[in-house]
Amino acid sequence: MSAPPGPPTPRELALQSQTDADRQVDLVIGRLLQIGVFAAAAIVALGAILFLVQHGASRAEFAVFVPGPPTLRTVGGILRGALAFDSAAIVQLGLVLLIMTPIARVLFTLVAFIIQRDRLYILITSVVLALLLYGLIAGV
């Protein structure tokens, strides 16, 4: 799609940008977000119950910042910890899933723009996706 010749009327602009395809995409995105959030919340709640059963009686010490073990700080470590049924790692797994929900949303938007062959927005969405994955995987 190229820029139209001459200044278009507002109505033309509206029709041009917010197509039915866009609306359809919006709906699926909304569902995706909700499913992701509820799945994440369920895993976090499960991990939280186990965590409180195991460590609930311990003294809470959070006044001074101490970085936790790598099993709670990297995606790989969290996966291994959760598979070993470590309660804190299960909470983190739910939180990683939660962080991935908006990332999945961006990925889905990218797919929609690919289907629409919208080159400009394929580029823009790819940049956002790359930045998000960089933050989650590399961690600045």
Binding site: V44, A45, G47, A48, F51, H55, A60, F62, F65, V66, P67, G68, L72, R73, T74, V75, A88, V91, Q92, G94, L95, V96, I99, M100, T101, P102, I103, L131, L132, G135, L136, I137, G139, V140
Partner: peptide
Amino acid sequence: AASSGVYLHRGYIEPALAF
């Protein structure tokens, strides 16, 4: 999500407080 990913690596996301 962008900054949370970074903070996860730094240990800012403490499960006992985040849940």
